[in-house]
Each structure stands twice: as C-alpha cells, then as structure tokens.
Design a protein around this nucleic acid. Structure first.
Lengths: 258, 258
DNA sequence: GAGTGGTCTAGACCACTCG
DNA sequence: GAGTGGTCTAGACCACTCG
C-alpha cells in the first residue's frame, strides 16, 4: 500500500545499489521519484533530518543531494517551511524577429498578466544610458522597472530606460509601455537584441521565485523609431525554464559567402 | 610590499567587517580581489586548508565560499591540482538572423578553429529525428557531434542529425558541415532556432571546460533547403560566458497589432 | 514553541594530480 | 609520496515560518 515517499527513501531501497558518492545516489533516487511521478509537482518532501534518519546518512549528505536538486530546479527550499517539488511552468514561446509587447503578446494567448512595479520615475542618467540613448550630459532619464507576471507566475524582470523626450511622464504608464508610447506616436518599429545566458543572482532569483544560480536569459534591447532615433534601452532577465525564444535565420548574401 | 593574496586573506583584514554569514563575506572578499586584479586570471589560489588556516574559519566554510565562486564562474577547481581564477574568455557575437557556418564565421574573425569529433556515423533514428527530418520508420540517420574549439577555447557542443539522403557519408565531413553540404548542392538557406537557458550538466560542462551548473545556451536548429525540405536538426549547447547572440526585430504587421 | 532550513566546527578518509 | 579537492560524520546553534 505505502509505495510512497517514505518507502522510496528507506535506506535499503537505494543505497549502495549504484556506484558513486552517497549524495549522488540519493539525489538521483529522489530525481527519479519526481520524474516518475511518485512525488508530484508541489508536493512537500520530508525534512532534511527525517530523510537523514530514514535513509541512514548524515544531514550534510542529504543537504548536498538537495543542493543539486535545487540547482537543477527540481525542488525549492524555503527556510522555516521546508522543501517541495518545483511546480511545473508552461514554457512561453516568443519570436526573436517580431517586435511585440509583453502585455499584448500574453493577452493574445489568453493569459492574465500584470506587473509589479519595481521602480518608476525620472533619475539622473548613467553613462551607458547617456551613450545608448544619445542624451545630453547630466540629463535625466525615465526608468520603468517591472516584474512581469502571467497567470500568477513571475516570468521576467524588465528594466527600461527612455529619454524624457519620449516619456516625460513615467508615472502614467499603465500595464503596457508600448501602448503608452503609441499614444504619443513613438512606438518603436525596429529593435536590436543581445542575448546571453547567466546564472541568476540572489535578488533576481527571489523576484522570479526561483532558486539562486538557476540559468536565466539576459536580454538587452535597443529599440528605434522609423526615423532611426533610439527610443528605449531595456535590460531584461527571463526565467530560463519559462521561455523559449524562436529565431528565423536566412542565408547570408552570396557575395559574402565565399 | 606584500599586498598579495596572503594579506588579503588574513582573517583580521575581512572578517566581521560586513554583516551576514562568514562564507558570504569570504566569498565577496575573494570575488573583489579577482575583480580588482589583486589576483589575476589564471592565478592559483591557496588550498582550501591554507585559506582556512589563514583566515581562521573551518575548511567547510571555505568550501562553501568556493562553491559559489565556482558556480558563478569566477574560479575553477580541479581535484588534485587546486583552485585557480578562471581565464577570461573573449565573447563571440553571433547573429540570429543570418544563417552562417561556425567554421566560416570564425575564419572571418581570424580565429583558428578546430573541432573534436565526439560521434560520427549512421545510426538507427530516434523518434524525434524521424519526426523532425520526415524519415521513414526504422530509418537510419546520419549523426555528427562535435566540440567546437576556437583558439584553443571550447565554445560549443553541436549534435547534428541529417537524413542519409543528404549526408550518406558522414565519415567524410571535414571541419565544416555546411561546406560539405555545399558540394552536393544541399546547403540550407533558411533555419528556425529555439533558444533557451540551461544549467550545464556534468558531462557537457567537462567538454566545455567550465564548472558544472554554469549557465549555457541551449539551441535547437532545424534547417531547410530552398524547396522547403528539412536538411538538418541540430542541438547545440553554447557556453554562456562566451556567446552573445544578436537579433534584429521588426514590428509586427499592422493588421495584427490591434 | 515546535519545526524547518542555514551556517559552522573539528575531524576523518578517499580519489586524484604531479613531480 | 605529498598535496589537492571530494565526500562524509556527529553535533551545535541560528534565523525563519507557521499555527
């Protein structure tokens, strides 16, 4: 009857059956239990001390196994409230050739989105902002930083900087920055993005509700008006487990292909 | 005179000056020393036991600090040979709108590239390969897996699968798969890529000469001939610290933008 | 207040590297 | 063989969560 967690963790049911370090055997054993559904998404795991006792290893060994499960995003640990299996997140596919608005994009998929405001207002511009946005020295810059949430799941942190010429009133931006820019006729028509992979730091990981060190996508975007003026410089961090970016590539011009 | 590592690690020079856990203070202190150049790229650090003694904390606390420096890619640890500062890698910028060959791309930048062959030959096709490449059931598939190395630095693992119709002789492929396909007039003209972020597993991390768990880019590419036939299905893993992908975005058609 | 994960210690032995 | 990081233990106290 009890083909549950407890029996799975019984020492005699796993230890020394494989080779390699104890913590790796325990880690793989728990990972299998998660993947095969013996433990479901969102379920709580026994405490480190309980597992240590059940499985006959020291608590530090259990912690070491957990640490790697945490790093790989299989479980989530919270001080004071225990360890549980990471809830599954539906991956969002986003095009890398069509410039779209997060809010409009998600609405089209029938998802309920909202943003948590992290920062909004006019600030003294930093040097990168001055250079990227072609601002005069000692200029102010409009900044909007938001945590993007779809159906209750935080997906991305967006930190946008704009020239005050295009956004004199950051306080009035609602859910969608692009919709706001539309009103003033300065919605960008073209953008360049730079994409790289990073391990999330403690602060960003907490905002995105994932474990520190989990892989994320770091995207810097510079958006332009049809006349070539720079509108927006945005640094975003996306959850690696929640996003697939799609790009369509074409062969380079024949003259160049030697 | 000795404003070196040893003095930096002296217990009285850092401990308890900040708040927070000991290991975090030590970690930040070493990270600062690396960033400010007190310890240079490639330099060896003292052993865990030496640091423990110098700084007056237990070895486990030193290990915990090191573990996070390793995770963030600042240092590299090798059993039996010690801990050293990660050598700096020049980032490669690669377009996400132009389909180019790794070999040709790097040659254009004056880099010396070579590949280490991981797997090459004809194998029974897996289900995903059959579906993606439109192969008949129980078909064979040509596979080439290579570790891409530029100027001695491993940059990416590429695992390509092709229909034997396009690549009957995988054994004859040289440095460049695309150059080989050119000869038979079946070089792809268009491709779709899916990009996501992952934490590198132990095997891939070892091939790429980085630490396990470091963030990498996972890219799946499907390439097409001008007539629409699928040529190639490639799963690649790129080092997150070595690649920036560039994408140019355009506004979506007006009819769609409501 | 009971229970959880987070930090820290002292000490031990193992696996690997390198001269 | 000496030195390195890797694993493991038993035990302690702290910070946080939750009923």
């Amino acid at each position: 009857m009890e083909n549950t967690l407890e029996s799975v963790l019984q020492h005699e049911n796993w230890a020394r059956k494989q080779s390699g370090p104890l913590y790796a055997q325990l880690r793989d054993h728990i990972a299998d239990a998660i993947r095969t559904g013996v433990i479901g998404a969102g379920d709580s795991l026994p405490s480190e001390r309980e597992i240590a006792e059940l499985s006959g290893v020291s608590r530090i060994t259990v912690r070491k196994a957990f640490k790697e499960l945490v790093r790989d995003g299989l479980v989530i640990q919270k001080q004071g409230s225990g360890t549980s299996v990471t809830p599954v997140v539906e991956r969002v596919q986003q095009s890398l050739s069509i410039l779209s608005s997060f809010t409009e994009d998600m609405a089209r998929r029938g998802k309920h989105v909202h943003s948590e405001l992290l920062e909004r207002g006019l600030y003294p511009a930093t040097l990168p902002e001055i250079m990227t946005l072609s601002l005069p020295p000692d200029s102010m810059v409009a900044r909007i930083s938001r945590l993007r949430i779809a159906d209750g799941v935080p997906l991305a942190i967006e930190r946008a900087s704009l020239s005050p010429a295009f956004l004199p009133d950051p306080q009035n931006v609602g859910q969608s920055l692009y919709a706001h820019l539309d009103k003033y006729g300065c919605r960008p028509s073209r953008a360049l993005q730079r994409i790289s992979a990073i391990n999330l730091g403690a602060d960003d990981a907490e905002l995105l509700d994932v474990n520190e060190g989990v892989a994320g996508l770091n995207i810097e975007r510079i958006s332009y008006l049809p006349n070539g003026e720079t509108v927006e410089f945005t640094r975003s961090i996306y959850r690696g487990d929640a996003y697939d970016f799609l790009a369509e590539l074409h062969i380079q011009p024949a003259s160049d292909s030697r």
